[in-house]
Each structure stands twice: as C-alpha cells, then as structure tokens.
Design a protein around this nucleic acid. Structure first.
Lengths: 235, 235
DNA sequence: CCAAAAGTGTTGTCCCTACACCCATGC
DNA sequence: GCATGGGTGTAGGGACAACACTTTTGG
C-alpha cells in the first residue's frame, strides 16, 4: 500500500471589518513564491482539519473560538497551484471581531489586515491561487449573512443595531434601511439579547446594546438585492 | 522540506432518484474495513480534485458531465476516520439521472444504488465516517434544490413538470402543491425550455415536455417548510 | 361517462419596501 | 435650539399557500 502522498496544508481566510472596510488577514512570505498570501500551515499527523484551522487562527490572531466563527470553506488541489509541488489545501473561513485584531507575528513573517477590494478586482495579486480563494471566501461570507446571525462575530461583545447593520452594509457593499433592518433583527426570536444598557458612542439618541443571542439561523433570511462592489455607497 | 505527507482520496456521494426513492451509489469493500462505502480513489499526482472526482464518476456510472452535476461537498480529515492510517478525503456530491444508472462494476467490487433513508436514521452502518458524509451530502442536496435548477439533473432529458416535482418531493420528503409548483417553475425565466411535445406516460391529460433551460439559479428560491424524513408522505 | 392527471383563476395572508414621523441625546 | 442618530407606524405591493375549477386524455 505504498501510495502517492501529498503535502496537505490548512489555510485560513480570516476576515474582519475595520475602518468601514472588509479586510483579510495576510502574511508576507519569506520564500518562493514571494508576496502576500493567506496564513496557513501543514496538517499534522493525528490532527483533525478543524483542529488545525483553530490552531492556525489562534497562532495568527490570538483569538479563541468563542469570539470568532470558523468553518471549512473548501479544498483546493490544482496540481500547479503551488509551483514547487502538488499541494492540497483545505481552506477555512473565519469571522473575526474588529476589536480583537492583534496580529501576532508569531513566526518571522509580517502579517497584516489588508482590504479585500483590491484583491477581488485584481489590483492586488496574491501568491498561489489565493486570489480565487479570497473571492470564494467573500462570496461565502456574503451568503452566510443572509441566513445566519454570524455577522455578530464581527462586532464587539456588546453592540448596537446600527453597528451590526454597518457590518452588513460593508460586506454586502450596499446600504440597508436602518428602520427595516432594526425591526427585522430585533424581531427575530433569540437573535439578539438586549443587555438593558444603552450607549451614545455613535452620537444622537442613545441606542440599546445587545449581545448575540442563542439563535444562529435567521428565518426568514435577510435578502440582499444583488451582488455589488465592496464598500458602502455612502448616503 | 521533508514534511509529513498524507494519503489523499477523492470520494463520491452520487445520488439519484429511482423508484420514488432517494438512493446513493455504494460499493462493497473487499478489504478492511469491510462493509458498504462511498466509491472513491486516490488522488493522482498532477491531477486536480475536480478531475479526480469526474474520473471517479465516469468509472462508476459511465456518465459524462453533461447529464450529471458534480460539485465539491467538503473535506474530511479526522485522524481516526480510517483505522489504518490518517487519510484526508475530499468528497464530491453528484446528481445523477435515473435513466442512466448502469452500475459499472469496473473493478471487482460490487456496486449498488441503495436507499439513503436507512443510512440517515442509523439503521445501516457504512464504513469509515461515511454515514456522516451521506448526511452532509443529503443536506447539501436539499439546500441546492431550493435555489438552483439542478433537480433537472435527476430527470430524463425530456421531462414533465410533475416528474420534476416528484424529485423535489422525494428529496425533501414533503408533498408540494402541484399547481403552485407548476406556476413557479414554468414562470421562472429560462429555467425550463418547452420542447413543444407532450406525453401521456403519467396518465391523464397530456403534459408538456421540457428540457433544462439555461438558467441555473432560481429567483426567488423555492422554499421548503422544514426538514422532514425522506420519502413522500403519499396523499 | 368516469377516473386521473394537467393546468388556470382567485383570494387571503404574510412579509417586505418605502417612507413619514416622533424620540432622546450632545452641544 | 438644532443636529444627529434611534426607533415606531403605516400604506402599497409582490409572492406565496390554499383551494375551486376547467381541460384533456385513457378506458
């Protein structure tokens, strides 16, 4: 049973919303192929894929899984995707809050949160097939916001409805009606739990603060009109 | 750069609708671990994952990709999923028409289309983690029917609206109103192309025959009420 | 004629969109 | 006061569920 064996890596497409911009965690490679790439590492023998992804997330962001969301995106295995050798990568998608974004350059590599827009429209070239992976990751993220409450993972532990809505607007690249959005999200059973506190940190009338609720799915879903460019067309 | 390497296999969850039942293609293993399992094979060096899955589909069903639908389901890599060794599997989901179901036992293995219901409710145990994979595959298939026209891939080249509806009913395990379904699917632009022919093969008034249209997505989606058991609660 | 299946019409309901409008703070 | 953002009320419309009803075949 001596069979062809492959290098198997687990890559991480960790996205966050920072400065009204959708950003993704990238590392600068110190070896061929040079350039920016998604963080990732080799799968270790005896380790599950989910474990490897969680390990990678902690190494790169110092974040525990309670605050973030981690799910498998898909596997990539084109023979030419790595110029050195045929490598199979299982890529994971992570939703990471804005607050906890200390980029821990654990190893020698430089790491940074960079905007995804230039990557999607081809103005920034990543190593390997990572442009494609980022596109897949953003599409998956956009779809996830429609049917789940995972947008809360981009927010601080306590957040206002407006802050949550801005996450949607930035990731979908389209403005949403604040009044309808508020009704929708607060009307969904167990989606948000009011803390009883208020804040005026966004100015104007005090807004109620919420924590993520036990519900993870949205019924009915919040539908976006159609795919648009990133960033919010500011009113 | 001598690294841990893994056996990488590509498995196939090929489903079809036959005899008013959702079935999946399984092979009987001639070696440990014995029992029924999803068909699959090793990824070959220089081969893309999609290629390997397509090769597997042709080997097992003799079907070209025009008639079937093939998409990546997800990767599985738990260290104990194969008792012999830590193996990473990329699993693909295939929608296969009822007509073209000649199980080509290419190698010595016995192959068969078996109902998925006993697998889902635990009355039939498959080798490896394939019970879990089948469950994931069925869930993905159910979701796909909501937003795409891929249910046509289970039908013969020319089919009636009722035949298409029965695919939905069997996979979703719930009856659908024929009249509303008909309006919905024929009203969706470019979903179905009428052939101009009619048939009375289902008895009663002649029904129009359709071919799959160029549209692949359904807007708005056909929503199912909730997850149910397999099989149609017959009226 | 009758059973069976295909297809159209219709009605009420739900949910969403689009606004008008009021509320509560900081300055 | 006034600007700014938070939140409720409400009218119109689109889509869908439910069902009555007509159409067209085979026997």
């Amino acid at each position: 049973m001596s069979r062809t064996r492959f290098r198997v890596t687990v890559d991480l497409a960790a996205i966050t919303v920072h400065d009204d911009t959708l950003k993704i965690l990238l590392v600068e490679r110190g070896e061929e192929p040079f350039g920016w790439a998604l963080p990732g590492g080799h799968l270790e023998r005896g380790e599950d894929l989910d474990e490897a992804a969680a390990r990678e997330l902690i190494e790169e962001t110092g974040l525990d899984l309670d605050r973030a969301h981690l799910e498998q995106l898909r596997a990539y295995g084109h023979p030419d995707r790595d110029p050195r050798e045929h490598v199979v990568t299982i890529c994971y998608l992570a939703f990471v809050p804005d607050a906890a974004t200390p980029v821990a350059g654990d190893d020698a590599r430089a790491a940074a949160w960079l905007p995804v827009a230039p990557i999607l429209n081809g103005r920034q070239e990543l190593a390997f097939d990572h442009n494609q992976i980022v596109a897949d990751a953003v599409n998956r993220a956009r779809a996830k916001l429609e049917s789940t409450t995972l947008a809360t993972r981009f927010c601080s532990p306590e957040f206002t409805v407006t802050e949550l809505r801005q996450v949607y607007e930035i990731i979908w690249g389209q403005p949403l009606d604040q009044r309808n959005f508020s009704r929708k999200i607060t009307g969904t059973e167990a989606a948000l739990v009011p803390t009883g506190q208020q804040t005026t940190r966004n100015g104007g009338r005090p807004a109620a603060l919420y924590r993520p609720g036990p519900a993870t799915t949205l019924h009915p879903a919040i539908l976006r009109s159609e795919a648009t460019e990133l960033g919010v067309p500011r009113r």
